[in-house]
Amino acid sequence: EFTQISGYVNAFGSQRGSVLTVKVENDEGWTLVEEDFDRADYGSDPEFVAEVSSYLKRNGGIKDLTKVL
């Protein structure tokens, strides 16, 4: 089950073990991109978060400006 990723309007994530599946949706709710990120592939949590965040930004993730990150 996908849940909204904090700080984004149209990005959602689903966690299974160490694998986080993220997706970005358009205004109609269609999935634009979907990608798996395995936490085990990264040396640290900040590196993992930075990679996921960068992916979302590159692929149309819209920041939720009503929330302070």
Results as ranks from 00 to 15, higher is better:
E1L: 11
E1T: 12
E1C: 15
E1V: 11
E1Q: 12
E1R: 13
E1W: 11
E1K: 13
F2T: 05
F2M: 07
F2P: 06
F2K: 06
F2A: 04
F2Y: 09
F2L: 05
F2C: 09
F2S: 04
T3K: 14
T3C: 15
T3S: 10
T3E: 08
T3N: 08
T3L: 11
T3H: 11
T3P: 06
T3G: 06
Q4L: 15
Q4T: 08
Q4M: 09
I5Q: 03
I5C: 12
I5V: 06
S6F: 10
S6P: 14
S6W: 13
S6Q: 12
S6L: 11
S6C: 15
S6D: 11
G7S: 05
G7D: 04
G7P: 07
G7Y: 06
G7M: 06
Y8M: 05
Y8S: 05
Y8H: 06
Y8L: 04
Y8C: 09
V9R: 09
V9W: 07
N10T: 05
N10Q: 04
N10K: 05
N10M: 03
N10A: 03
A11N: 01
A11T: 02
A11S: 03
A11F: 03
F12I: 03
F12G: 00
F12Y: 11
F12L: 03
F12C: 09
F12Q: 03
G13A: 13
G13K: 10
G13H: 08
G13I: 13
S14Q: 10
S14D: 02
S14Y: 13
S14G: 02
S14I: 14
Q15C: 15
Q15A: 08
Q15Y: 15
Q15V: 13
R16M: 05
R16T: 07
R16E: 02
G17N: 04
G17Y: 05
G17W: 04
G17E: 03
S18A: 05
S18Y: 04
S18Q: 06
S18H: 05
V19T: 05
V19L: 05
V19S: 02
V19D: 00
V19Q: 03
V19I: 12
V19C: 07
L20H: 02
L20E: 00
L20I: 06
L20Q: 01
L20N: 00
T21Y: 06
T21R: 13
T21W: 05
T21Q: 02
V22Q: 01
V22A: 01
V22C: 04
V22G: 00
K23M: 06
K23Y: 08
K23Q: 04
K23H: 07
K23C: 09
K23S: 05
V24I: 14
V24A: 01
V24F: 04
V24R: 00
V24W: 03
V24M: 02
V24Q: 00
E25I: 15
E25P: 00
E25Y: 15
E25N: 11
N26E: 02
N26P: 01
N26D: 10
N26Y: 05
D27G: 10
D27T: 11
D27K: 12
D27S: 13
E28F: 11
E28D: 11
E28V: 10
E28G: 08
E28H: 10
E28M: 12
G29S: 03
G29H: 05
G29I: 02
G29V: 04
G29W: 03
W30V: 14
W30P: 03
T31V: 12
T31G: 06
L32R: 05
L32T: 08
L32F: 08
L32I: 12
L32Y: 07
V33M: 08
V33P: 02
E34G: 04
E34T: 13
E34F: 10
E35P: 01
E35H: 14
E35M: 15
D36T: 14
D36V: 14
D36I: 11
D36Q: 14
F37W: 01
F37Q: 01
F37N: 00
F37M: 01
D38H: 03
D38V: 02
R39P: 02
R39G: 01
R39K: 04
R39S: 02
R39Q: 03
R39D: 02
A40V: 07
A40W: 07
A40C: 15
A40D: 09
A40G: 07
D41F: 08
D41Q: 09
D41R: 09
D41H: 12
D41V: 07
Y42L: 01
Y42H: 02
Y42A: 01
G43A: 13
G43S: 11
G43N: 12
G43T: 10
G43M: 11
G43P: 09
G43L: 09
S44F: 02
S44I: 02
S44M: 01
D45P: 03
D45C: 15
D45Q: 07
D45S: 06
P46D: 15
P46H: 14
P46C: 15
P46V: 15
P46E: 15
P46N: 15
P46T: 14
E47L: 06
E47D: 08
E47C: 09
E47N: 03
E47S: 04
E47I: 05
E47F: 03
E47A: 08
E47H: 05
F48I: 01
F48K: 01
F48S: 00
F48G: 00
F48N: 00
F48Y: 06
F48T: 00
F48C: 04
F48M: 05
V49W: 15
V49S: 09
V49R: 13
V49D: 11
A50S: 09
A50Q: 09
A50P: 00
A50I: 06
A50E: 09
A50K: 11
A50Y: 09
E51I: 13
E51R: 10
V52G: 01
V52K: 01
V52E: 02
S53Q: 14
S53E: 15
S53L: 14
S53H: 14
S54L: 10
S54M: 11
S54H: 09
S54G: 10
S54I: 08
S54A: 14
Y55I: 02
Y55R: 02
Y55S: 02
Y55K: 03
L56F: 01
L56G: 00
L56V: 07
L56T: 00
L56W: 00
K57D: 15
K57F: 10
K57L: 12
K57Q: 13
K57M: 12
K57V: 09
R58Q: 08
R58M: 10
R58W: 06
R58Y: 07
N59Y: 10
N59R: 04
N59K: 05
N59F: 11
N59Q: 05
G60Y: 07
G60C: 08
G60S: 03
G61R: 03
I62E: 04
I62P: 00
I62C: 08
I62V: 08
I62R: 09
I62F: 07
I62H: 05
I62S: 04
K63L: 15
K63P: 12
K63G: 07
K63V: 14
K63T: 10
K63F: 14
K63E: 13
D64N: 08
D64S: 09
D64P: 05
D64F: 09
D64T: 09
L65Y: 11
L65A: 09
L65S: 10
T66C: 15
T66Y: 11
T66W: 11
T66L: 12
K67T: 12
K67F: 15
K67S: 12
K67M: 13
K67N: 12
V68T: 11
V68I: 11
V68H: 11
V68W: 12
V68Y: 11
L69P: 14
L69S: 14
L69W: 07
L69N: 13
L69K: 10
